[in-house]
């Protein structure tokens, strides 16, 4: 346990680990903790050092960069942590990414040859993960007995979320329905990140472009949400198999 001399706040490896759950592999939309990318967390006073490895050495440098900067920034939101440094291991650009992220450089400075910036890639993948999460959220609402039309027109204001429960209010407040918390909370978080909760439309669920869903398009949008979900989890299977292959006994070492 580390204690910040100034604030007295206590940080443990467990709290750092818990905070790192918020960081996702942007291509898979799964937490880097659940994916077991995090190798080591070290505490040095109010400083934290996180070491991580990705499934393949040629994972997109932009994705590696996003995970490294997100890990650093999330850990630094913990009270009692003054600075977080990261180290990426066994990647084709491990040294550049480690040094660049710890020096707080930009992706463009470290990788001048890359086409397009990290922000653009992140926005595309966030939009895809919102759509993928929408699939599970709609299923949860159907499970709770809502009709497709009620789901389609549900607004952010109709939804009440706390840490463990989720309820929706229907028929202008006439009644409340409890729904499965996790898929709804996960969806709402992404809807927020992608800027849909603050735009001109009150509807919670949207088509892939971010507009409200027309009545005759609900099935199509639901199926496209399923497709986004299958794509993300399918890629997860590929990464997973590559990860196993890479760590199999007797595997020749990767050339550098």
């Amino acid at each position: 346990m580390a204690t910040n001399a100034r604030t007295g706040a206590a940080t443990t490896r467990a709290t750092v680990r818990e905070r790192l759950r918020r960081v996702t592999d942007p291509e898979l939309d799964e937490s880097i903790v659940d994916l077991e990318y995090v190798d080591e967390i070290r505490l040095l006073g109010s400083r934290v050092h996180v070491t991580f490895t990705l499934p393949t050495a040629w994972c997109s440098p932009a994705f590696a960069w996003m995970m490294a900067t997100d890990a650093r920034d999330e850990v630094e939101t913990l009270e009692g942590v003054t600075r977080c440094t990261v180290r990426l291991r066994e990647h084709m650009h491990d040294d550049e990414i480690t040094a660049g992220v710890n020096r707080r450089s930009t992706f463009g400075t470290v990788f001048p040859d890359a086409d397009g910036g990290v922000d653009e890639i992140r926005a595309t993948l966030d939009a895809k993960s919102r759509l993928a999460r929408q699939y599970d959220a709609i299923d949860a609402l159907r499970e709770a007995g809502l009709t497709d039309d009620q789901i389609r027109t549900l607004t952010a204001a109709d939804l009440t979320l706390d840490d463990e429960t989720a309820t929706v209010t229907l028929a202008e407040g006439a009644f409340c329905v409890a729904v499965d918390h996790d898929p709804i909370a996960a969806y709402r978080q992404r809807a927020d990140v992608t800027g849909l909760l603050g735009d001109d439309h009150p509807e919670l669920f949207r088509n892939p472009d971010g507009d409200p869903i027309a009545a005759d398009r609900f099935d199509l949008v639901y199926h496209r949400s399923r497709l986004a979900n299958v794509n993300m989890t399918g890629q997860g299977s590929v990464c997973d198999a590559l990860n196993e292959a890479r760590h199999a006994p007797g595997r020749p070492p990767l050339s550098r």
């Binding site: 291509e27 895809k128 496209r224 497709l227 986004a228 299958v230 794509n231 399918g234 890629q235 590929v238």
Partner: peptide
Amino acid sequence: LPRLDDFCW
């Protein structure tokens, strides 16, 4: 792959 969604659409 990994853009099955774009491809199918």
